[in-house]
Amino acid sequence: MESFLPGTASLIDSVDKKLLVILRDGRNLIGILRSYDQFANLVLQNTLERIIVNDCYGEKERGVFIIRGENVVLLGEIDKDKEQDGYPNLNKVSYEKIKELHEQEIKDKKARELQKQKILLERGFSEEFGDYDLY
């Protein structure tokens, strides 16, 4: 990294570049960063929403996004050359298919969590409140 400016100032280099943005709910958005502000509110153009489940992925065009900065976990530039090579370890499937897989994954995870909680409760741990772990 050549220069690091405090706050969101370092984002200036990423303007008009293709970025991957991960939100707190686990969403992956890929789009061109058009602008941002001091809160890291972002404007993404030609956005793709990509869902990855195990070794499958699917994506859908989503247009222009204004993302409220609070919800951003990370963002990073996408290497154009590497992107062109594709993803040798992932299979592309339709959005409908991946959505289905994704929902199944969420369901399974919930069931596992419930199971875990039950066991912990039996052993004298207190119940956990809220579901902060949204990934």
């Binding site: 939100l23 058009r34 153009q45 222009v64 204004i66 409220r68």
Partner: peptide, 15 residues
């Protein structure tokens, strides 16, 4: 209320 928003999607041509 602004603080409860995750994101907004607008039409392509606005930009």
């Amino acid at each position: 209320r602004g603080s409860s928003i995750k994101y907004l999607r607008i039409q392509d041509d606005v930009i």
